[in-house]
Design a binder for these strands. Sequence first.
RNA 1: GGUCGGUUGGCCGAGUGGUCAGGCAACGGUCUGCAAAACCGUCUACGGCGGUUCGAAUCCGCCACCGACCUCCA
Length: 490
Amino acid sequence: MSDFIIYNTLSRSKEIFKPLNPGHVGMYVCGPTVYGEAHLGHSRPAITFDVLFRYLNHLGYKVRYIRNITDVGHLVNDADEGEDKIAKKAKVEELEPMEIVQLYTNSYRQNMAQLNVLPPSIEPSASGHIIEQIAAVQQLIDSGFAYEINGSVYFDVEKYASVHNYGKLSRRKIEDLYTNTRDLDSQNEKKSGLDFAVWKKASSGHIMNWPSPWGTGYPGWHIECTAMSTKYLGETFDIHGGGLDLLFPHHEAEIAQGVACFGHDTVRYWMHNNLITINGQKMGKSLGNFITLNELFSGTHPLLEKAYSPITIRFFILQAHYRSPLDFSNEALQAAEKGLERLLKAVALLDELIPSADSSMDVGALKEKCYAAINDDLNTPVLIAHLFDGVKVINSVNDGKASVNAQDLVLLKQLYHDFTFDILGFKSETASGGSDQEILKKVVDLLLNLRVEAKKNKEWATSDKIRNSLTELGFEIKDTKEGFSWELKK
RNA sequence: GGUCGGUUGGCCGAGUGGUCAGGCAACGGUCUGCAAAACCGUCUACGGCGGUUCGAAUCCGCCACCGACCUCCA
């Protein structure tokens, strides 16, 4: 089998993945800031790195996957200078900040479960790691790369850049940054406009704050990831993932903080997923064009023609490569919905195929192609294309136009089970179980048996009325040699 | 303004020097009482201009357009 290759943003090239400790992988992915409902944009990194997590598990690695919950410290923009996002929302709704945090954390987890995103190994929250963050800030001060002014602590970018390469991840030159940095009021006390806060003094109206050696305040924007990733994964770990929008300044700052603390890089492979656009424009809270996952699942948003199931969203996202931009449209979502249905139907059909003596398909070659695709920097669109090639064969076997022997059928089932469900994380969403369902099945079977009788007697009007009425109610009726088959469409 | 990325058929979206991407839609056929589903077939594109090459969507140059980051954002 080919090597597993990952595109490392740091080197801007594809590299063979070799974990630091054989058999084990440590990965850290930037999670959500829980001050609002999860939206379409949140689904892409979650799903991308879920597939990575699943695939590494499939390869037999023991993976520790950390995805944080940011519940403190991110500043809002100019409108509310220096105010904590969570605290701001709390005032508006007159709730305790931690109530907001809990509400949206629960909501996020529920949405992730709907998308069939596996829970990470550890989901640490920033508010639960204040002590570690204070320790990290102290370490930065001790190393000489951070300084305290008026109860706030800032990272000294200029000093860092004189010894290390600041900007190596985002490929920014420090001189360019100087000329392009805006002067914000709050930056007055900083030595340089490039410096960023690692600890911020709490203003009078700031609800979320903690005591520290520098007075009452809250952690800076980037320190939580440094503190929590190294706490759980060590000073050096394998993979750090996140959205492309976090490349600068967030991940650049993380690198600087890590190097300043430990004297060496902490991350071996940096991975960044591209963003989802809507009509060619990025989604953003400030642009007001973002669609929440709950709106997507229920179809309640002016931009949506209908509801789209969570697994349809998952399929839509994985049909594009994670490093390519992906544009949202109803047409594309509906195409994804039908494609997914076609794939899942064929996989279900595998259990009904009757093996023959000979085989007209090469399962081994298909398997090799599938692994080659996923091994090439998680090329899920090519992987899915290969799976569709197999779908054609599966359907042909069912039609008696191709054949598969018993041995190949076993291999084929294993292949589709591994890739469709275990690695890509798709699943069938048709309703199942429950006594209501059983009754429903009996009633529909009864009606369709009546229809079979009508057909026998060539009473086409009756037969069509039964089928058309059921179709109107959302059933799909198919006549087969044995009689009929049906399913209830969503 | 700086830095980086993109422009592929009706739509989405792979692909990096010659050979089928794939899905959706459309059209024709097989099957069917008629359908549906499935299968077979058709639709063969690569922003513009120039260059390199026997050969370029793929490499190089220029131009146009779009986007991202530089400011909280997945």
